[in-house]
Every structure is written in C-alpha cells, then in structure tokens.
C-alpha cells in the first residue's frame, strides 16, 4: 500500500502533511509506505527520514491541471500510488478536478466536491448558515478597491480582511483596508473577503465528514498560545457539546466529504458561537485529535479505499499539544538531489 501526502512544509505556519503522516503511521492497522509530494525543495518533511520514504517535487497549483496530472502520472509509474491525501487549501481545487482521472490510473482520493469548496469560500456561506441557524459574521467579497467603500455602510471598524486561501488581518480604517487589500490580492488574487470582526475567544474543531451527511469524528480545541501569525502553538481538547453539535450540523447540511477544520469564535458577552471559516482540509494540529482517541486521517484513508468506518463516539478531554521547532541537519547532497532530480529517496 502506498499513500502520497502533500503539505510537508512544516514551517512556522505549517502544512498538515507531516501530522497527517504521523497519524497514519500511528495506526497499528496501517501497513504501507509514505510518499511525500512537495512544492518546494526546502520543505522540511522531505528531509525527515522517518516521515516519508520517497519525496517528489510537484508543480505549483498555478501551473494548471495538465502539469499536475502529468507529473503525478509519471510518479505513479514508478510508485504505484494507492491513495493521495492533499492537505493544502490552494491545491484542493486541482486535485478535486483531476480526481476522476487519478482514479482511472488507480489512485484514490477522498475530497470535497468543487461545489462544497465554493460554498465555504464565498459569501454564500453567510446565506447558507443563517438558513440553518448557524451564526456567521457578515461578509462581503471585494474584487476591487471600489468594493471597500461599502465597508462603511455594512459594518463598523475594525473588520477582518482575508485572502481567498490564507492570511487574515484586522484593520481599523479604510486606509488599512486598502493596504491589506493590495497585499492580499497581489499574493492570492481576488476576491478578498471583508468580514465583520467578532470579539471573543477562538475555538477550532478538527473533523471528518463521510460525504453522506455523517461526521465520522470531531474534536474541539482551544488555542492556548497563539503566535504573531495567528497560528496556535499550543492547544487543549475541550468538552463542549454545543460546539460538537454545531460541527456535526455543518458537516451534515453540507454533506461534507473529507477532513476539515472548523473555526469558531465565541462572542464575548453573548457566548454565542460564530462560524468563521470552514477549512477544506485537516488542521496542522490534527495529531492532537489522534492523541485524544480519534485517528481522523487514518479514517479518511479507509474512506478513500471505500471501506466502512465506524464513527468515533468520544475523545479524551484535556489533551494538550505544544508545538516545537527542531533544527534538522542535512547535507548539500540532499538539496542537490531534490533540486536537480526533483526527488529525495530515504529508501
């Protein structure tokens, strides 16, 4: 059995690839080899000998579908991949679009549909959630600076300015909004999401939907330490039935298929949960869910293979993750291999 995983960029804003691999390997039932798929020659996961056996560079999403498919096809000729688990937001559209083609060469995936991907990204989320009694901050999609003028009439400052894939900034006035609009649109393109700012604590849920409306599992976490980039550097599993119920409901109404990270904020004063975002992949802290008793990535792997999966009933409360960094030492030879051949082999 060979499983290829992307997102080995275990950096200060980490991709979920390495924790997903760790989760697979953590399952006593998992027998197989891991293949790392990387976009950059310095993705740390590719240099970790006990993470993946082989690593291959693949083309960036902005290079188009053919480029990606052709590269995967040629890797598959050597490796005979059974399952690919993509873990990065910006690549999911591409993988979802070529999933049928991948299936035809024997590679299985378990991904959200394009519609589901669109639903979570657009202002439709607002309409959709209010219809199902899920509170969400107000959103507008800006495709030009012109659109920022409507902030005044729709919200009060501060507002949150978000890129379509990543990055979010809290801004206090129009000028700041313009600055971050320009910054984000240069990096990730348009639209830019302008969101009402809800004051309160953030809660995150790692979950897995089976595509039929059931949540296979859901583990909520409160961030204990947040970096200046807004990333959780430590977190603890908590017991909140309301949060679980809300997560199950979102997965059920969306018939979500694949892993997800749901981001909520609990409004100060009212204690109401607002859904901030539906991330279409597991979070980088997903191993906390595994440690708490729900091996969601392994369950996803089984779903991808078409096997039945029993929903998880519980998880341990009070499990803590604390992220740390570690300087891996390697030689120029390794860097040369990946740069020139596009491969790193840990055999």
């Amino acid at each position: 059995m060979k499983v290829a995983v992307t997102g080995l960029n275990n950096i200060d804003s980490p991709g979920p690839g390495v924790p997903v691999i760790r989760a697979l390997k953590d399952s006593p039932d998992f027998k197989g080899d891991i293949i790392g798929l990387i976009y950059d020659s310095l993705e740390p996961g590719a240099y970790m000998k006990d993470v993946s056996k082989m690593n291959y560079l693949i083309p960036y999403p902005s290079n188009g579908l053919d480029a990606l498919y052709e590269r995967l096809e040629s890797i598959n000729e050597k490796e005979n991949i059974d399952v690919i688990i993509p873990t990065l937001d910006s690549e999911l559209y591409s993988f979802a679009k070529i999933s049928k083609k991948l299936e035809s060469i024997g590679i299985k995936t378990f991904l959200p549909t394009i519609d589901q991907l669109n639903y979570r990204a657009k202002d439709k989320l607002f309409e959709f959630c209010t219809k199902h009694d899920i509170k969400v901050p107000k959103n507008i999609l800006a495709t030009s600076i012109q659109d920022l003028y409507s902030i005044q009439s729709e919200f009060n400052y501060p507002v949150v300015v978000k890129g379509i894939f990543y990055d979010a900034y809290i801004v206090n006035n129009f000028d700041e909004a313009v600055t971050y609009y320009n910054k984000l649109s240069a990096k990730w393109g348009v639209p830019i999401i302008i969101q009402e700012y809800i004051k309160g604590d953030e809660y995150n849920v790692a979950a897995l939907g089976d595509g039929k409306g059931n949540a296979v599992g859901a583990v909520p976490m409160k961030k204990l330490y947040i970096t200046d980039k807004g990333k959780g550097w430590a977190g603890i599993t908590i017991n909140d039935p309301v949060l679980i119920e809300k997560s199950n409901k979102i997965i059920s109404v969306l018939k979500w298929q694949s892993g997800t990270e749901l981001e909520f904020v609990k409004e100060k004063g009212t204690n109401e949960y607002y859904l901030l975002e539906i991330n279409p992949r597991f979070p980088a802290w997903v191993f906390l869910a595994v440690a708490a008793g729900q091996n969601l990535p392994y369950a996803l792997f089984k779903l991808a293979l078409g096997e039945e999966v029993e929903p998880f009933q519980s998880y341990s409360i009070g499990k803590i993750f604390i992220r740390y960094s570690w300087d891996l030492i390697t030689d120029l030879k390794m860097f040369e291999e990946i740069t020139v051949k596009g491969e790193i082999n840990h055999g």
């Binding site: 120029l332 040369e336 740069t339 020139v340 051949k341």
Partner: peptide, 17 residues
C-alpha cells in the same frame, strides 16, 4: 559544480542549476 548541473557558491551560500 556537479555533473548533474548543480552549482554551489560557497562564498555566498547560493546555489544554481
């Protein structure tokens, strides 16, 4: 410079293909 076309410039730490 390796035969594979990888060039490392020790003085600056830059590499090239």
């Amino acid at each position: 410079i390796s035969d594979s076309g990888f060039l490392f410039y020790p003085a600056t730490g830059e590499s090239f293909t």
